[in-house]
Amino acid sequence: MKPAPFEYHAPTSLDAALALKAEHGDDGKPLAGGQSLIPAMNFRVAQPSLLIDLNHIPELRHITKPNGSVHIGSMTLQSSAERDKLIAEHVPLLHEAIPNIAHPQIRNRGTIGGSLAHADPASELPVVALALGARFRAQSSAGERWIEAKDFFAGLFATALQTDELLTEIAFPTKTARTGYCFTEVARRHGDYAMAGLAAIVELDANDKIAAAKLVYLNVGDGPVDAASAAASLIGKAPEAAAFKEAGRIASQEDMHPFGNVHATPEYQRHLSAVLTERALATATQRAKVA
């Protein structure tokens, strides 16, 4: 229950961190909030030979709104983002999701970028990022690139980041008119890993019909699960209970393939997902009408 020995570096600039990453590649494990990595190291499930502690790089902690999106530095604490007014006003889905991430003690250390780069299928932020179509800034000592959310998540605990790259910033699109957002999940106890949950986005047209929809689920696959056919079933329909129920059925029966876990069978996860879909769509619709 103690970490195996490792070499420790705490660079104070991004350039220094990228140089370490270029030199050590996969052996140089970035330490963000450590709220998943250090437990894994305590269990010795993870035994990195070298840690690159990113906590001393001020340029990775910022929240700005340049144009059309809110940019969040990867090392921004979840607790800072939770209380941030820009996020609350312009990215309501993210604002609603963050309090569901574990407990306050965890959010005081855990970072936005760390959680996204960890890509745990049970975590909230990948679902929000995929639902909103967030963009990920990956930097290396050779340069930088922006990665779309749909290309960023590459399966169980896997991302598109190369071994010399660090996730430095995430751009979340800001809310748009006639669009409602909802995040909801069910956990056995507040802050525990959710058994199921989703981010729902509904855009209404001038006639109050559904113009666009997005449904992305957590913990029911090897990453955030985009229920594309369920969302497509809503287009052009009146935002009413029957349509929501059908979307929940398609999402839970066709779009997802939950593994189940010690707390919930796959059938139960499908059931929860279907029920939560109806609730999330109803809430998102209400919000879209006044947006």
């Binding site: 250090i38 003690q105 005081n108």
Partner: peptide, 11 residues
């Protein structure tokens, strides 16, 4: 409040 078992002393 933080959990001191999942932080390193150097931090």
């Amino acid at each position: 409040p933080v959990r001191s078992c999942i932080m390193l002393a150097v931090q």
